[in-house]
């Protein structure tokens, strides 16, 4: 396939790979930050309960 005809396919293939990887990274990173915050709040509450 010649350059002009192949460009949309190459762009679609690369865009797909990068978009999916970035979205996954974003979701996991967000979840991790939320869980860390939650853990910190719960740990403090647990310590208070123990006192």
């Amino acid at each position: 396939m010649q350059l002009k005809q192949a460009v949309p396919y190459v762009v679609a293939a690369y865009m797909g790979i990068w978009v999916v990887l970035f979205v996954y990274m974003f979701i996991v990173n967000n979840r991790l930050s939320r869980l860390k915050k939650e853990l910190s709040v719960l740990s403090k509450a647990f310590e208070k309960k123990g006192e």
Binding site: R31, L39, L42, F46
Partner: peptide, 23 residues
């Protein structure tokens, strides 16, 4: 890198669930 990050979410998630149950 993604494996380590995902592993951490699972590990912390379990700890959060445990603390929620305890509280």
């Amino acid at each position: 890198a993604l494996l380590l990050m995902r592993y951490q979410t699972l590990l912390i998630g379990e700890e959060v669930d445990y603390l929620k149950n305890e509280l």
